[in-house]
Design a protein around this nucleic acid. Structure first.
Lengths: 129, 129, 129, 129
DNA sequence: GTGGTCTAGACCACG
DNA sequence: GTGGTCTAGACCACG
């Protein structure tokens, strides 16, 4: 569930951030639910508690979770649906680079679109749109 | 043309790589065409020659350009259409993360798809697909 | 009356201390009046009795209340008007930091002064000054 | 200049944040100016580089400085003058607590106002208002 | 038991 | 030389 693949050059704390966001979107982690403690999770993924703590703090800053010191970390109740213009532009920039790489990898527009739909569906996007 | 914005924490050499790939895909740089020399380009974008050199070497490794020692760097004739399974999986992984961020930024599937199509079209993808 | 909002990371026992001091200053708690027992108050605000007990002990240390073992806690008769030099310096330090944050938040001197006057008035400061 | 007094219970990294903000407001650090490197500053104040780094990253997040990895940290060019409603409410809350403490320390409204004006003036607030 | 802070020290990418 | 990441481990406040 919290299995982290040590991917190539992607910082562990970012992988933790993405994994938890993914679990929240899939509904595997529900609003109000308690996350594993910093120590528990660091033990599970064999990482340093500081690394996990850094991920949790960034997740709180992004409004995904809420940290109650001494109590633990909890999935934030209010769903994240703000439309941040700056963030959206950053995502478009990422998309631009992804398309460049995709074309060089021999992928067609249709293939990418299919993947996109699959990933969106797996993240429960259909419930939102 | 080779204008590099020092974007948020993206290494300059990666920006150079993407920019040259983009220009190749758009047809602004044609197969066989000579690229600016390392010194010329580093002067244009006010970057360290080592940085540009690193970008060129990576571009050659990826088969995008060819470096002929003493002659310069040239856009590779062979069009980029190989299907690298490992690379494709990496792209899918990128796409997964992009979708997670997009949902948290309040974007719908349709919006992302529209962007995808626009970016693909701008890179001359229609000629390939 | 003793409603405690679990504010952003401010320890509950400190919130209790401030709330009781505020009620004393406003006159809602009068000199000699009996405070709720530790158990009563911890029940009201849904907090650990240890937490409330810690707040009461700190309030006694500061001379705000008096704890008579077996009898309960009472608002201290002696009004709080001693001039503690060390404490005043600490307050000035707090003020310095507050002003820094206020300027960065776009507040003007006049706005802060107005707030200051309002807060002072609400705490019955006019009776003293 | 970067002297940090190890105050009672205030985290070192927060003290660094305040000190740098103060220096920026006073004009001792000018827009575009380079801050000491993480290692330099950590040596100056006898703290761990990680602690200074944490302060710098928070300062960047707040828009006070800009970190260019490999280059250093620089005072942000655009002045911070956004009016964040949430932040302003937090400041008012701080002010409320400060007034409570001030009254218990025997300070009058006039004394606090005078301090406020002095601190504001020292931070170059007159240039803004 | 929980998260927060901090140290000491290592290695790495970028330029 | 610079900041970024990470580990190992310590101590502390809160409840």
């Amino acid at each position: 569930m919290f299995q982290i693949d040590d991917m190539k050059n992607i910082p562990i704390y970012e992988q933790v951030i993405w994994k938890i966001k993914e679990l929240c979107l899939r509904g595997a982690l529900k609003p109000g639910e308690k996350l594993p403690s910093v120590r528990e999770l660091s033990g599970m993924i064999i990482a340093n508690p500081n690394t996990v703590s850094k991920a949790y703090q960034e997740l709180e800053r992004q409004g995904v979770i809420e940290i109650r010191p001494g109590k633990g970390a909890f999935v934030h109740a209010r769903p994240p649906d703000r439309a941040d213009a700056g963030k959206q532009e950053g995502i478009r920039e990422q998309l631009r680079r992804l398309v460049i790489e995709a074309i060089y990898a021999g992928l067609t527009l249709e293939e990418i679109k299919t993947w996109l739909e699959e990933e969106y569906a797996q993240l429960g996007g259909s419930q939102r749109a």
